[in-house]
């Protein structure tokens, strides 16, 4: 079986597994007997109700939806109001990879902890507004892997599919005896791009 790298979560999708490893801040609603070792700050055997602790998402998803929820999850800080404002102001300026390696994947899961649905909205908005940025990167990069640093995993996969197509085209244009290319004067003329941007 080939390594499953599909973005659609199935049982073995690597991105999905990695995304659900991320920790979510939670508050315990009940006393948890003999789980004191989860909280390194205290030396007690039992976890008291009201303790704040970070638990991985795969665990949280199962223990919050039972009839008597054990913990109450809250939003991780990159999806909170403050960060949402930053993302709204200029999505392209944000280093998404630094916020979270699986910003979108994780966001799709944690949006259920946010009753006002503003997380779902910000995910969609961030992606659509950053698409131009990703597209331009994939089109203008010849071989410089460092440009991907600001993209999260999902955006990197989009970048890669665009970049591969671009590379194929470039190599196709080069194989002929007389490669098609813009004149060196045009390439070096820096104002050209700006003129084109104004037009469209």
């Amino acid at each position: 079986m080939p390594l499953q790298t599909a973005y659609y979560p199935d049982y073995f999708a690597v991105d999905d597994i990695l995304a659900t490893q991320d920790r979510i801040p939670c508050t315990f609603l009940q006393d948890a007997v003999k789980l004191g070792k989860l909280n390194p700050a205290e030396e007690q055997a039992d976890l008291k109700a009201g303790t704040n602790i970070e638990l991985p998402l795969w665990l949280v998803a199962d223990i919050t939806t039972t009839r008597q929820p054990v913990v109450a999850p809250s939003l991780p800080k990159m999806y909170k109001e403050g960060n949402r404002e930053i993302l709204k102001a200029d999505p392209c300026a944000v280093d998404l990879h630094k916020l979270s390696t699986h910003f979108y994947e994780l966001g799709l899961y944690v949006k259920q902890f946010d009753p006002r649905e503003s997380v779902a909205e910000i995910l969609l908005q961030t992606f659509t507004l950053r698409l131009r940025f990703v597209m331009d990167l994939s089109d203008n990069t010849v071989s410089n892997p460092s440009v991907m640093q600001k993209l999260d995993r999902l955006e990197r996969s989009v970048f890669k599919s665009g970049h591969d197509a671009k590379m194929k085209l470039v190599s196709w244009l080069k194989v002929s005896e007389m490669p098609l290319e813009a004149a060196s004067m045009v390439v070096n003329h820096k104002k050209r791009k700006r003129v084109d941007d104004d037009l469209f």
Binding site: A61, L108, L124, F127, V158, S161, G162
Partner: peptide, 22 residues
């Protein structure tokens, strides 16, 4: 052809973000 890999891929993600229910 030069846009084909990127655009449907991106649209897939958008569709997923709109419909995904954990």
């Amino acid at each position: 052809n030069s846009m084909r890999p990127l655009l449907p891929h991106a649209l897939d993600h958008i569709y997923r973000m709109k419909t995904f229910q954990p």
